[in-house]
Nucleic acid binder design. Structure first.
Lengths: 205, 205
DNA sequence: ACCTGAACACCGTTCAAGT
DNA sequence: ACCTGAACACCGTTCAAGT
């Protein structure tokens, strides 16, 4: 079964990425395989290797799409919420997003590149875009003189990592089973306390 | 090659767990397999399935050993450090531990149980023990009336998750490449700010 | 009772051969 | 140029058969 150019290379790439995404969403990460994707789109496994270096790169593309979707959500929220509340609202939205898309979030937390390969720039850019959104939301909590400082960047990363830790640990049940409600309050509690810490430091100086 | 009872069942179990650990440390998680463990200990693959339900359970045992080692380190530190500094010191120790054992930590962050199976009690107990250490270290930062409260528990989980997020994201390079030094300061910065937040709340009441 | 090893149903990846 | 599909070197897991 040969079919030259039924899809353009870009279309085919996109088809592969979306099929992988669907398999993950519907059947879970553990059911995903290169052969399964090929079956689903009606091509042979070899074809995937014309389009991607390997399965890991393909999976990283799926992750990038997930980060884009999260970024989209946060940007909507950022447009219509008062400056001072942005961070708390973003944190909640982050939590909601992870709970709504557990399989896709699973991929992000569990998949790692093979040893000795590095994160490609197009992936890092996505992370940076999200971090910048947090930085923006943090600005009101910093003195004006530090609105572009190292410590603002550090705070954004600490917040990002904190949310990441809470969501991934509660999703995998490794936070030692309190109810869902308890875990949801963790995000609020964390952000509240962290912000209280920032403003305490601000007053201290 | 049959050899009845050269090892007692418990000895054999331990041998398997330690061999798995060694493969992960020396060759990385990606090289680990049931067959590789069997080769290493000179038994057939089938034997592993007399001792463990499946590979996932075996890997969870390796993780439990890693958590025990971390707990050991934190307990040493807790014995000999002043109450007020415990949390910061523990956080640093946590960071050091993850950097010293990247492969073992990798296992903890990347391995998840197959869908529909739950974390066994002997694993949750380890998590809880570590969380309790953090609770103890947090007590000086809480009002005496709350030394056994829900909010203390929440704080311990927030701190644990925060550290987890920072270490696993920087280990996998997903914190958008600042230097190692930058990432190390993240832990301190996070703890400082969080504790400042706690004491601000304490004064506020 | 304990262990084997062949068998089953899969993998990721490559690459000569086909159109 | 694009795609196939067989081939290679692996997997996790089971279970009849051996001692």
């Amino acid at each position: 079964m040969v079919r030259r150019s039924i899809h353009s290379p870009e279309q085919l790439r996109e088809l592969v990425i979306q099929s992988a995404r669907e398999i993950i969403v519907k059947e879970g990460l553990s059911r995903l395989s290169a052969r399964e994707i090929a079956r689903k789109i009606g091509y042979s496994p070899g074809t995937l290797y014309n389009l991607f270096d390997n399965l890991d790169e393909l999976l990283l593309q799926v992750q990038a799409r997930t980060l884009d979707a999260l970024d989209q959500r946060l940007s909507e929220l950022q447009k219509y919420s008062p400056e001072a509340d942005q961070l708390s609202l973003m944190a909640r939205e982050y939590g909601r997003f992870c709970r709504e898309h557990p399989q896709l979030w699973n991929l992000i937390t569990q998949h790692d590149l093979p040893p000795a390969s590095t994160i490609p720039p197009w992936y890092s850019e996505r992370i940076e875009r999200l971090l910048q959104r947090i930085e923006v939301a943090l600005v009101p909590h910093f003195p004006p003189s530090q609105s572009n400082s190292e410590s603002l960047k550090r705070s954004a990363r600490a917040v990002w990592a904190g949310l990441y830790g809470i969501t991934s640990l509660s999703a995998s049940g490794k936070l030692s089973g309190y109810g869902d409600h308890f875990n949801e309050t963790l995000v609020d509690d964390f952000i509240n306390t962290y912000l209280a810490g920032l403003s305490a430091k601000l007053k201290g100086h």
